[in-house]
Design a binder for these strands. Structure first.
Lengths: 277, 277
DNA sequence: CTTCATATACTCGAATCGAGTATAAAGGAG
DNA sequence: CTCCTTTATACTCGATTCGAGTATATGAAG
């Protein structure tokens, strides 16, 4: 989900009264979008010279990007930006229903690009196979940025100067789509070891709702019993005692996030075989 | 390990002919330090206003920091910067031999600071308990930055204007020690799911050498049999066939890193309970 | 009352993990 | 030479986690 301002990410120059960029940004977001920012982390600083193909090659525009998560709010009138799912811009990243059919055309285009340079053929081929899961354990949702970068290099997206073919997905202003891809990749990696999903949930929610949110982020369908077990043994949520009956099926218990637990537990164990003595 | 230039991190302004910052930086490092950079990733962009207490509060200095890993080289003459272990600057982060005795004094100072503000007492106390492992599962090496930030807020490090007490660890220029803490924390987290350690190893190495490198990064002692098992089943290394006999003990087999494996395997599984069908 | 859809609970074997033990091979002390 | 120290390497065992699947509960719709 991203704020839409004519297919651009919300941005501005950083003049602010605040000492820290983060604090200034928080105020700016709330003012500009009407949504208070819950979670906020620095994403990446883009400073390459050819970010804007049209401008003077001797200037360098520096963008410090942030990843923010906010709860979706009810409609706020048409003067406010609307929410738009990010799969508009990255249709090949959504594997929830099925492997997106558009992937075939993308991979065909990439293969063509790989073959077009006999010297780099093998290395390009390796990158494609890896990023799109043709080797190894299959599709890896974390590689969203690598996939976009390959498509950019191969000129399969409209941002590329000399686009060939249709241009996959909806384009964005400047290099905003690259920034968004960076954010998606970061967020997809992050949800695995830090409970940021809850910043997107309302105060009380069902387990299915939580699962569907994670699925939307990861672009994958998850295994319901195992998802519940995982959530359960992390002890991150507790029942509110209430029950919801949204249309169809057995009513579900409502849960709330236990903010306090964060301080008491190590999230996603250490993975290092520590010696104890 | 960090390059020493009078207790500062190597830095410079980013005028370069290169289109990408990363490429320019790579060239700059090699030129300046004589060490070719192996692994390089953007770390964090520091842009707060009060980074340099002495300067004009209406200017903002922006530093884009990078984390780089290089193999240690033989001495190159005294005109080149020397390597210095980072535990000079963060003695409380080295738990390889034992819990560092200096931690007692640090925690005492922090407790005093927490108590000095009755309104924030509880929240400060929580942060201290969490960062220094007094609650939950104990010491967590990944929290190096949080620990430094607490010490900075409590004015227990010399960078703070109104230092009280001795000032723990060796100070660095400007906010370089905060940057270094950021890098340590990032690297400690990274080695758990990405095989960057090998960027620090020579072409062939023993398992103990590898373990000691990881231990130096994590500041922890590891369990030898389990460390070997983990390395082994990741299939990241292979025997060279040779044997080393560095002084003392049974000679060890030499191993080399299998660069190729990276493309074929998913590193540190997905942690999401994916549905397959 | 049956069917459908969803919620929730439980099972089972495989893989992984923490912790520890056992054996092998070098050098040095006596 | 023998024993001891030191490091290398191999193996064990129980507990926990994980992938995958099954079974039962409870509402709404027809």
């Amino acid at each position: 989900m991203t704020v839409r301002l004519g297919d651009a990410l919300p941005s501005g120059s950083f003049e602010s009264d605040h000492h820290s960029l983060q604090a200034g940004l928080r105020a700016w977001i709330e003012n500009k979008t009407g949504h208070p920012a819950g979670y906020l982390e620095q994403l990446y600083t883009f400073a390459d010279r050819d970010r804007e193909p049209s401008s003077d090659p001797n200037t360098r525009r520096i963008s410090i990007s942030y990843l923010g998560l906010v709860r979706e709010q009810s409609a706020l009138g048409s003067d406010r930006p609307q929410w738009l799912g990010w799969y508009e811009y990255f249709p090949w990243e959504d594997h929830r229903d099925r492997r997106p059919p558009v992937l075939d055309a993308i991979i065909e285009g990439l293969d063509e690009w790989a073959s077009s340079d006999s010297e780099q053929h093998a290395s390009r081929r390796h990158r494609i196979d890896h990023a799109f899961g043709r080797v190894g354990p299959g599709w890896n949702e974390d590689l969203a940025l690598q996939r976009y970068e390959l498509m950019y290099e191969a000129c399969l997206v409209a941002e590329c100067g000399r686009l060939r073919g249709p241009g996959f997905g909806r384009a964005m202003a400047g290099d905003h789509r690259r920034i968004l891809a960076t954010g998606i990749a970061r967020l997809r990696a992050k949800i695995k070891y830090h409970p940021v999903v809850f910043e997107l949930m309302p105060n009380s929610f069902t387990l299915l709702g939580l699962q569907q949110t994670v699925e939307a982020l990861a672009g994958l369908r998850l295994h319901k019993p195992n998802f519940r077990r995982q959530v359960d043994q992390q002890e991150l949520i507790e029942e509110t005692g209430e029950i919801t009956s949204e249309t169809r099926g057995r009513p579900a218990k409502l849960f709330r996030y236990r903010r306090s637990i964060l301080e008491a537990r190590a999230l996603a164990g250490s993975r290092l075989p520590i010696a104890r003595d």
